[in-house]
Design a protein around this nucleic acid. Structure first.
Lengths: 342, 342
DNA sequence: GACATCTTCCAAAGCGCTTTGAGTGCTGCC
DNA sequence: GGCAGCACTCAAAGCGCTTTGGAAGATGTC
């Protein structure tokens, strides 16, 4: 069933049928009703490709996901972000098209996406410091929103970020206020902008509070459970071990907890842990009182908002760039307690 | 830059340029080289929509993901499955288009997908028992592969499944051999076919070994960490608690562990735990000796294989339906030990 | 009643590609 | 030299939709 067939059945021209279905005013209410009814009855749905070719709008958003051979990791929070964004796309009749691409081919992937014209815009995931993709996308003149930010990029672009620096500052200060002085940071890969900002927050707060940074108390790697485990295990075995750790995600925190418990220590009493909680659906931070004291911000909500921002940008391509900086909550759970008595 | 412009520059017809680029034999090697070079130089890439409209092939695969309002959960393993499938799609020049859809609109989503003709096939996720989607997709005549199976569906369809029943049979037998008699099952939602099969494996093995099933020792819900925690916590508080638990995923197992440790028990000594490990990238089951004794099967590999099967099916739509049943490994880790002395 | 103005509809062009069917020029053979 | 056959190339017809630029009929105004 296509438009020609449908209009033939109705004894109307394709023009009229198309207009009736798309809500144009040049068609009488009576015929519109007739057309709508016939369309529903026959299950007519316009061919997306033909419509897209005719209108110039793909009605789809691209997400390029690098799957590196080096760190073969699909981001933990990714599924929830996509879920949030996908909701909004669905509401607005947009599709989500994903490209999994080896990370040395990522730039090419964006070029291809732009040329093939099957997306109207893209979301940029996991920006690094001075991320080259931003200028590339500007050059390609394709609307985009960055989930996160990229330090040292001077051009204007749309982004939505959590105030990672501020969040970790607050977490660090919270631990210091509790009497901790040996505070470790189990960070993500610091090529990633968010991880870098978290480190800055950590270092800045230690410095401001007169605590000298001990390089032995920071680790940085992919945010997996084993990363948390090994980092914590090694650091807790030091002669002068940390009494508190900041974990970059709830998954990392799980690893930290494993190491803590393996050592026979009790979380929240012997060792304090704060983590960054992205409120991932299948791994909530407890369901009553939080398991972990955490800085908290919903990645799913971020996905929703990024999608909205992008759709707005597509509607009005000449609008000024939009930025949103979200503050994370600091929620207190059972994983933190007073530091050691001096 | 489009085909017309490119052929104009080259002084050739669109036909010839198109044929040269698509590897048809009716064009001389010399012109082919010339055309290729010009295309590369100008960064020409055919418009996906126009090509798709002309060829009738969308070069894209659809994944419909229900996001229920009831259980607002994005499947844990989903990201890894997609990553695997996406790799294969990428290698074959296919895109992946995702529809997030509220689960009461899922059937409509498939219809729309079929009508809009912007995908050549779909992957069905999370089949339930007697899943209506299978007959629907047959009726819509759109190639599809089911990740999992659907009990009680009589029609033929393509599927790839892990032998969940056998895996849990082996896990249960393993625990019985270790001397356990009070064995609990912390299962997923049993509307899901895989969860149902796991229960059958559990019940069957208990029965075969002469152990009477205690309904107090089974739980079933979304596979989240809190599900593992609450289930284990409640069951461990019973007058006659389980000495071993089978967890439906590694995330659930994390919750189980939390409950075990909270009770002051030691994993692998006081309580044994076996889980189903989907080998999710960010949450490996340890990196040397496994943390948990587990039945193990890579969901990422499953994604890859499902994608291959689907692409083959698209190439040869009249080929017979293909099935693959994968056996899970049973790997021994540190979370299991001998049962209580009689 | 004649003219202007809406309202309602239509034919046809065009989006950018693939593919059919038809040349055109060249080579080889008799 | 004439012809068949081959190697290339092309013009044009779609794919299914939107949208432009009219046209036809209905309505209103003087």
């Amino acid at each position: 069933m296509n438009l020609r067939e449908l209009s033939r059945q109705l004894g109307l021209s394709q023009t009229t049928v198309s207009r009736a279905l798309n809500g144009y005013p040049e068609v009488s209410e009576a015929t519109r009703q007739k057309v709508m009814a016939a369309a529903r009855a026959s299950g007519y749905q316009p061919d997306a490709r033909a419509r897209s070719l005719a209108t110039g709008r793909a009605k789809a958003i691209g997400h390029v996901i690098p799957h590196s051979t080096k760190h073969e990791m699909v981001n933990v929070v990714f599924a929830d972000f996509i879920a949030g964004a996908g909701e909004v796309y669905g509401q607005h009749g947009y599709d989500l098209v994903m490209s999994m691409v080896s990370d040395d081919a990522e730039e090419q992937a964006y070029r291809t996406l732009a040329r093939k014209r099957n997306v109207d815009g893209v979301i940029v995931h996991g920006p690094t410091r001075n991320d080259a993709r931003i200028d590339l996308l500007r050059e390609l003149r394709i609307p985009f929103v960055v989930h996160g930010r990229s330090s040292d990029v001077t051009s204007e672009y749309n982004w939505l970020d959590v105030n990672n620096r501020r969040a970790i500052e607050r977490a660090t200060a919270f631990l210091i206020d509790l009497g901790h002085r040996r505070i470790a940071l189990v960070n993500g890969v610091e090529r990633m902008d968010f991880a870098l900002r978290r480190r800055l927050g950590y270092e800045g707060t230690l410095h401001a509070r007169g605590i000298t940074l001990d390089p032995a108390l920071t680790r940085s790697a992919e945010m997996t459970e084993p990363h948390g485990y090994h980092s914590a295990r090694e650091m807790l075995a030091l002669a002068d071990p940390p009494t508190a750790l900041i974990a970059s995600s709830i998954v990392v925190a799980m690893g930290v907890r494993r190491a803590v418990e393996e050592r026979g220590l009790r979380l929240g009493r012997d060792v304090s842990v704060i983590c960054f909680d992205d409120m991932v659906s299948y791994f909530p931070n407890g369901d009553g009182e939080p398991i972990f004291t955490a800085t908290r911000s919903s990645v799913r909500a971020a996905g929703r908002r990024c999608a909205e921002m992008l759709l707005e940008q597509i509607e009005a391509p000449d609008a000024a760039a939009v930025h949103e900086l979200w503050e994370a909550d600091l929620v207190v759970g059972r994983s933190t307690g007073p530091g050691p008595q001096q």
